[in-house]
Nucleic acid binder design. Structure first.
Length: 496
RNA sequence: GGCGACGUAGCCAAGAGGUCCAAGGCAGAGGUUUGCAAAACCUCGAUUCACCGGUUCGAAUCCGGUCGUCGCCUCCA
């Protein structure tokens, strides 16, 4: 690694060089979701953020073990299941399937492991036993609590002390707790709830412990990166640290804590309690998934990002532009014989061709420099669009045929961006088709009818009947269908 | 009340004290191109980085204060 990647660490509140413990092997755990409902665009942000972390680390030569859990044992799941009269694990499995569909629609890479809580009860019980053995927990009835006062570093991540926390201020405190901030490691089973046998009787894991246990099982007592949404810093991640470090005696549990910013709607955080939820699949019906990625990645992952349908459609426009340039570059790459070097061609042709060559040559280094600095995807995307413009300048000009080797270079740059960001990964034709299908659906337009009218217009144009051709054009235009006459015939698109 | 983040053009957004008198995208104006369009390309847009002080030869970038917005402290990505 010629120049280390630098990442912001929530624990130290600094951007610091990232050096994995184990050479080129990186171990990363990301909090997935509690699967009692469909994924919303806030989940999407976390998933997209860490998908990019994963992609980029792999791109830079690391071997990454990426674990993202499904929390399938939880109060809310149980409550939903009881309402629906469905076994809790069946319900959670349905939502895991839905999650996989949604994330595939966004073009996210699957993690190395996707453990479920229900499959790791023995590991959880073992972890709780270790915590008790080291004197950091206590049993009350069939419940087990973590004793925060026994762990001197409690608050290290969130930067709050036990005095500051004032946990009792806003919630009713269970008077069996020794300290208001103590939290459940294991909960005794209530009637009608799923349960597992344990040394403390029938029960189930508390919230937090599952991540400690599964991270330990797949990644060991100490690992490189732990990610999740910024709203998990406290109490979830704080409690994870306390449990894990208390159980193993190994510090630090996690070397780098990474947290993505929230998605806001109309200046407010999207959240379950506010009820302002937008689901991933509602978007995917009408917009290609990469548009959401572009919208998010245009901002830094730690900043809040405003969501709006206008913003999304905006991003779709940019994506479309990117794919058009990609298509031109891909076309050139396929045709380029490589008989002449890009450098020679650039020198001979000069002007925009030379400019494109220069941009392409510097692209990878500049792209890496941006991403190395705590994943500055905004700048990386800026660079990509500079490339788009440079490509269009060359590809759209007369004599583009002579510049093929240089356009082929640009094509390779687009590949780098696509692999690292997951944007522009589809074959351009595939993207245009997806966009057309989804936009037609969004606008309720019948495809066959459009194609018939376009054919009609083409016939009119062949007869040089401009009046009729223009009438059809404006007719279609009123329905947001834009007709384009190019050298290779007439195409059409749905206006975005 | 405690802890934290942020405030850059009409909108979104990047900017490791000087080589940035501020990337990129969208929207807008003019132009090239086109049967007419669309797309694409070219040109134009913050004398300025919420406000006020301070440090410095020099600050959007550092420090202090003011105002504003948001997040966490309760389930949350």
């Amino acid at each position: 690694m010629e120049h280390p990647i630098r990442l912001y660490n929530t624990r130290t509140r600094c951007v610091e060089p990232f050096v994995p413990t184990d050479g080129t092997r990186v171990r990363m755990y990301v909090c997935g979701m509690t699967v009692y409902d469909l994924c919303h665009i806030g989940h999407a942000r976390a998933m997209i953020t860490f998908d990019v972390v994963y992609r980029y680390l792999v791109h830079r030569g690391y071997e990454v073990v990426y674990v993202r859990n499904h929390t399938d044992v939880d109060d809310k799941i149980i409550a939903r299941a009881q309402e629906a009269g469905e076994p809790a694990l069946e319900l959670s499995n349905r939502f895991i399937d839905a999650l996989h569909e949604d994330l595939a629609g966004l073009g996210l890479r699957p993690p190395t492991h996707e453990p479920k809580v229900s499959d790791h009860i023995p590991q959880i019980i073992a972890l709780v036993e270790d915590i008790l053995a080291r004197g950091h927990g206590y049993v009350v009835g069939g419940d087990v609590f973590f004793a925060v006062e026994s762990f001197p570093w409690y608050g290290q991540l969130s930067g709050r002390s036990l005095e500051d926390a004032r946990v009792g201020d806003r919630i009713a405190v269970d008077d069996r707790k020794r300290h208001p901030a103590d939290f459940a490691l294991w909960k005794a089973a209530q009637p009608g709830e799923p349960w597992w046998d344990s040394p403390w009787g029938k029960g189930r894991p508390g919230w937090h412990i599952e991540c400690s246990a599964m991270a330990r099982h797949y990644l060991g007592d100490s690992f490189d990166i732990h990610g999740g949404g910024a709203d998990l810093v406290f109490p979830h991640h704080e409690n994870e640290i306390a449990q894990s470090e208390a159980a193993t005696g190994v510090r630090p549990f996690v070397r780098v804590w990474m947290h993505n910013g929230m998605v806001t709607l109309a200046e407010q955080k999207m959240s379950k309690s506010l009820g302002n939820i937008v689901r991933i699949r509602d978007i995917l019906r009408e917009i290609p998934g990469e548009a959401l990625k572009l919208l998010y990645l245009e901002a830094h992952y730690r900043s809040p990002v405003p969501y709006s349908s206008e913003g999304l459609v905006n991003a779709l426009g940019g994506l479309d532009r990117l794919y058009q340039a990609r298509e031109a570059a891909a076309h050139a790459a396929a045709q380029s014989t490589g008989a002449r070097s890009a450098g020679d061609v650039a020198r001979d042709l000069g002007g925009p061709v030379q400019d494109l060559h220069d941009i392409a040559l510097a692209f990878e280094d500049r792209f890496h420099a941006a991403m190395d600095e705590d994943l500055n995807t905004s700048e990386a995307i800026g660079l990509t669009f500079e490339l788009v413009r440079a490509v269009n300048r060359v590809a759209g000009a007369k004599g583009a045929g002579r510049a093929l080797p240089v356009l082929a270079e640009a094509h390779a740059c687009f590949e780098t961006a696509a692999v690292c960001l997951g944007i522009g990964e589809l074959a351009p034709g595939e993207f245009f088709e997806e966009m057309r299908t989804k936009r037609l659906r969004a606008m309720g337009i019948d495809r066959a009818e459009v194609e018939a009218r376009v054919a009609e217009r083409t016939a009119a144009r062949l007869d040089r009947d401009w009046t009729r051709a223009d009438a059809i054009r404006s007719d279609l235009d009123a329905k947001n269908i834009v007709v384009m006459d190019g050298p290779e015939g007439t195409t059409w698109r749905v206006r975005v």
